[in-house]
């Protein structure tokens, strides 16, 4: 039976009854010996269903590492991470893979669309993995993204903005409870970045997903429910 973890008292977030994401005492280091770098040092974090949290911090502060840990792509050296009822820190890699396919949508800075798949196929993949293949859902998503005429194209035949829109569609098509976005506008010009950001926020709101975004940009902060700064391996609420 999953255990309900009470909100951490030292958390930068005010206590809310039903947190979706809970991280407690998370420690992560890279390297070995004298070259060891502490990235996360006993970090605590909570995010609630439907919440939009922005994490800011300097390059190398551990933002991507945090997202990887919350998405079950990596395991912390110490501490505990729970998403919904899933205790990620107690799961095997295979269990976390199944967790990711159902629960998480990733949006990356470099889009990371699969070059061997067309736009429609990139969108179909998460549905197929969850056994929920639906041509109608793909058509709707293409229309929602404004890419209906690009369905058969391959990623290398799209502009950067179009690629990121496909990536957003792929992250949200199966309506995951948690969306993790790592610098989603980092590779885009200002106008395109704004359009992509608005699209992402709208779609997240439509699905009711929790969005945790790591970014250097100022614009997302205005749209976020909370802004946290990652510094010295700890999260602090940004005023």
């Amino acid at each position: 039976m999953p255990t309900v973890i009470p909100p951490a008292t030292t958390d930068a977030t005010p206590a809310v009854p039903t947190p979706l994401v809970v991280a407690r005492g998370v420690v992560m280091r890279y390297g070995a010996g004298a070259l060891t770098t502490g990235v996360l040092q006993g970090l605590n974090f909570t995010a609630h269903a439907g919440e939009f949290v922005v994490v800011v911090g300097r390059s190398g502060s551990g933002k991507s590492t945090l997202l990887n840990l919350l998405g079950g792509m990596d395991q912390p050296l110490a501490g505990e991470i729970r998403v919904g009822l899933a205790r990620l820190t107690e799961m095997s890699e295979e269990q976390r893979a199944r967790f990711r396919r159902r629960t998480v949508g990733f949006v990356f800075q470099s889009f990371n669309l699969l070059p061997t798949l067309s736009v429609a196929e990139n969108l179909a993949l998460p549905l197929a993995l969850n056994g929920r293949a639906s041509a109608l859902r793909i058509t709707e998503m293409l229309a929602r993204l404004g890419l209906s005429d690009r369905a058969a194209r391959y990623p290398d035949q799209l502009s950067g903005g179009e690629q990121q829109r496909v990536a957003i569609g792929r992250a949200l098509i199966h309506a995951p409870p948690l969306v993790l976005a790592d610098e989603p506008t980092g590779n885009l010009d200002e106008d395109t970045a704004r359009q992509v950001l608005v699209l992402l926020c709208e779609m997240v709101r439509e699905t009711g997903s929790t969005l945790i975004m790591a970014t250097h940009s100022h614009e997302p902060r205005a749209l976020a429910d909370r802004v946290l700064r990652l510094q010295h391996g700890q999260l602090r609420t940004e005023q």
């Binding site: 998405g71 792509m73 890699e93 295979e94 893979a97 199944r98 967790f99 990711r100 396919r101 159902r102 998480v104 990733f106 990356f108 990371n112 699969l114 070059p115 061997t116 993949l125 998460p126 993995l129 792929r170």
Partner: peptide, 15 residues
Amino acid sequence: LREYGVLRALGFAAG
């Protein structure tokens, strides 16, 4: 390598 990483991120199991 990156594509395999993406597939893993999307939830592809090792098998």
